[in-house]
Amino acid sequence: MIDVLYFAWVRERIGQPKETVETGATTVAELVEELKAREERYALAFSDLSALRVAVDQELADFDAPLQGAREVAFFPPMTGG
């Protein structure tokens, strides 16, 4: 079980801010593939990974980052703070 969070337009495209998923994915990329296979809205949100950033347990990570022991994964567009 892992909490998956979405922010900004990723949240809007997927239609929810957070969900808990049962997954056997060992990397972020595998989790993305599982989500994309679920429904069109996920496939749409994850169609261009270069437009997305990911955080594992609230730390920026790469899509090939391992998920062993991770509790929370978040997907979002490049940040626009300041």
Binding site: F7, F76, P78
Partner: peptide, 11 residues
């Protein structure tokens, strides 16, 4: 760093 590495998004 706040511009590009702090998780804020502006609409």
């Amino acid at each position: 760093y706040l511009k590009s590495r702090a998780p804020f998004w502006k609409k």
